[in-house]
Each structure stands twice: as structure tokens, then as C-alpha cells.
Amino acid sequence: MLAACFLVGLLIHLVPGDPVEVMVAKMDAVSPEQIHAIREQLGLNAPPWEQSANYVWRVLHGDFGKTIFGREPVLEFLLSRLPNTFLLTICGTVLALAIGLPLGFLAAYHRGSWLDNLLMFISVLGVSVPAFWLGLVLLVTFSVHFQFIPVAGDGPASVILPAVTLGLVYSAIIARMTRSAMIEVLTEDFIRTARSKGLPERLVLMRHALKPGMIAVVTIAGLIFGYMMGGQVIVENVFSWNGIGRVAIHAMLQRDYPTIQGFIILFAAVIVTVSLLLDLVYMWIDPRIIKS
């Protein structure tokens, strides 16, 4: 985590561009002295390693600096958008799991049949669709053409389209992963034993296949949550969803480094937290893991 911060701090100095130049380009008639003064004020004159070390030090104290353009504190600026992003990610993940898990399970159960082949072809197709394109198509169909749903904004109705976009795209991946995980479970010896005991199929699945299957599902859910956090950076832009991804892209186009740095660090923090939570859930499902 610390290493990531330092890296992020150092990364900027590999760059040819300079935010001050972008800023100055928008004003007219600026003297070199003024540019120097702005740089001094923003702390851009110190040597790179010193800036990076300073940056890590300040981040440790909870100070992410201020955005170059709005002069707002970066952390508060980003945190204010985070709930929107979480809302979208959670809706998307739930939707993706709701579509992908049953389909993947169905494909695994009827492995080799035409249904399996059909489902897997659809999911390869789904994996191949760019999320932002699907978003645009949905947007044109439902907002522009039928005018069911507002085009942009972050009211409760506007969450539907971006969440559906993310949900559909990632359900294809989930279906594939669920299928291979469930095939593994269903070919285990204990499933055969359960069947040969004469248990009804429903009980075999509910009692014996469900629990080992759960571990796979939790892994998949965690992975998908991470992917979705990444994928949504672009999807937010399609729908003008007022989340952290949109802010980040905006900052990237403007070379607003403190914001970009803050964004990356915040993201790293979220991902680390999620993977920690996942480990806890594993232990809860399967206490054997604690011992190993």
C-alpha cells in the first residue's frame, strides 16, 4: 500500500506534460515569473524524490492535497462521489450474479448438451461486447427512443441503465466461471456417493453441492466486484453518472495530478479492503481454512 503511494507520487515525473501549462493556456498573457510563482505555490519546484516522499508523508496524515483546478481538498472531493460509485457497483454486482449464477449452474448441470453449448456461445458473445458500447445502445433505445428513463443524472431511475449495462456484461463472465467451478464440484466423489445412496436429485444439489459451490461463488463475487469497480470507470462516463470514475477521467484529461493520485490510492484501499473481507467470509464458510 505504501509502496503504491510512493510509486504513484513518482509516476507523475515521468510525464512530459505539466498542469501549470494547461492552466496557463486558459489565461492570456502570463509572465514566466507568474508561472514560477504558481509552481512554487503548488510545490512543483522541489526535486522529484522529495516531492514523492513529501506526498507519502502527507497522505499518511490524511492530506491528499488539493485539486489543481477547483482548489478543493482531494480526499473530500473524491469521498463525496464514492457513495454513488458504490451504489452502482453493488447494483451491478447483484444483477450480474442474479443472471450469471443460475445460467452458469444450468450449463454445468447439463454439461455437453445443446443448452450448455448455446449458453456458452452467448457468454462468449457477452464477454466480447464492450461495456461502453452496450451502455450507449441501451441509452439510445430506452432514453432517447422510448424516453422511459432520463438520459443522465444520478436520481434513483438513472441507476437502472448503468447497472443493467454492468450487470449484463459481467454476468457473461460469471456464467463462464460458475460453469467451470460447478463442473468441478459436480464431478467430485461425494456427489456420486450421494447419488448412489439414492438421494433425490434436489437433495443432492441442495445439501451436497451447494456448500462447496458457495466458496466458488464467493470468490467469483469478489473478483467481479473488483472488475466492476474498474469497468465502471468508463461506464460512468457513458451515463454521466456522478461517481468517482467520471471525476477521475475528467482529472486525467486535465492532468490534475493530485486528484488522479488520490483516486488511485483510494481505489487501492477499496480493493485491499474487499479482498480482506473476502478472506473473512471464506473462513466463515469453511473453518478449515483458518488452520491452513
Binding site: M229, G230, G231, V233, I234, M252, I264, F267, A268, I271
Partner: peptide, 8 residues
């Protein structure tokens, strides 16, 4: 990290 984020 998600790959798209590293690339971004």
C-alpha cells in the same frame, strides 16, 4: 488492481 485501472 483491475487491469483497465492500471492502463488508465
Amino acid at each position: 488492481f483491475p487491469e483497465i485501472l492500471v492502463a488508465l
